[in-house]
């Protein structure tokens, strides 16, 4: 802590009157203690608990067939949800950032809506639509189609909770970039396709990647919404987070934390990528 160098005039100014070099030390100390209690210790605990009974138990828990099918389902849901929301995000940002039309701020608010809905309710609404007692329930049953308590329901719930990620990243970015580069391209003879691939998308690539990374993290980690629509059929409709819950409730803590450590690793990779993308973006956005 000796290398704490205060750049705050608040501290420097008072230091002339009486020695209060401890102010930054105390503030940094309190902040770190708070973050430790709520962030660092829990993160460390995941890996500690996962490896508590040794590597053998750890690897066995991960290699277990039900765990594998949960991993596969998690990857499948993300593989569908992320590209869909990516295309949606680009279309929404293009319309909102490059054109003037009425109701724009209402549209932006509606796109953010899934963020303010409880995950449990996100799952519930699809049960109300496609469940046996839902709007389309009888029709689906007649045609022997299953949405809720099956893979399509899990995908739908995942799409819902990750809906805004790419759009809300791209909209402010493309608004800030304005329309001049696209206008210049049109004046130089570019058609719509060339405009999108040669001017607009290359300009927002880091923001796009940022949105995709966050979208993917949420898609793979979603618990509440997926829990409602899954039906918890082992080896069939369990995603990795749901698999962790089952193991935990069976007091199989070592296995639960082993699977949790995979998702915690994913979270750490997400944060590293996110930080890297942020610094790339900041560097490229110099005027």
């Amino acid at each position: 802590m000796a290398s704490i160098a205060s750049s705050a005039p608040l501290v420097r100014a008072t230091a002339r009157r009486r020695p209060v070099a401890w102010v930054p030390i105390v503030l940094v100390g309190v902040a770190l203690a708070y973050l430790s209690l709520f962030l660092f210790v829990p993160l460390f605990a995941v890996f500690f608990e996962a490896l508590r009974k040794g590597w053998g138990v750890y690897l066995a828990a991960i290699r277990e067939p039900d765990a594998w099918s949960a991993v596969k389902l998690t990857l499948l849901a993300a593989a569908i949800a992320v590209p869909l929301n990516l295309v949606f995000g680009v279309a929404a940002a293009w319309a909102i950032a490059k054109f003037d039309f009425g109701g724009k701020s209402l549209l932006i608010t509606l796109i953010d809506l899934p963020f303010s809905v409880s995950p449990v309710i996100s799952g519930l609404i699809y049960v109300l639509m496609f469940g046996l007692q839902g709007w389309f329930g009888p029709w689906l049953a007649e045609h022997e189609l299953k949405v809720v308590f099956a893979v399509p329901g899990i995908v739908l719930a995942t799409v819902f909770v990750t809906f805004p990620f790419v759009a809300r990243e791209l909209i402010p970015l493309m608004q800030a970039q304005g329309r001049e580069e696209e206008e210049a391209a049109v004046l130089l003879g570019a058609n719509a396709w060339q405009l999108l691939w040669r001017v607009t998308l290359p300009n927002v690539k880091w923001g796009l990647l940022y949105g995709v990374i966050l979208c993917n993290a949420r898609a793979m980690g979603e618990f509440g919404a997926v829990s409602v629509v899954s039906g918890h059929v082992r080896g069939y409709t369990n995603t990795l987070p749901l698999h962790i819950e089952i193991l935990y409730n069976e007091y199989n803590f070592a296995a639960a934390f082993a699977c949790a450590s995979l998702l915690a690793l994913l979270a750490l990779v997400t944060l590293v990528l996110k930080t890297a993308v942020e610094s790339r973006q900041a560097r490229e956005q110099r005027p």
């Binding site: 973050l35 962030l39 660092f40 993160l43 608990e49 934390f257 949790a260 915690a264 750490l268 944060l271």
Partner: peptide, 23 residues
């Protein structure tokens, strides 16, 4: 530390739940 502040955004809630319970 700055990067880790976003951990609750990136860490699946179920993982956070069992980790907090354990400690």
């Amino acid at each position: 530390v700055d990067a880790l502040v976003d951990l609750p955004f990136a860490l699946p809630t179920a993982v956070a739940g069992i980790a907090l319970t354990a400690i």
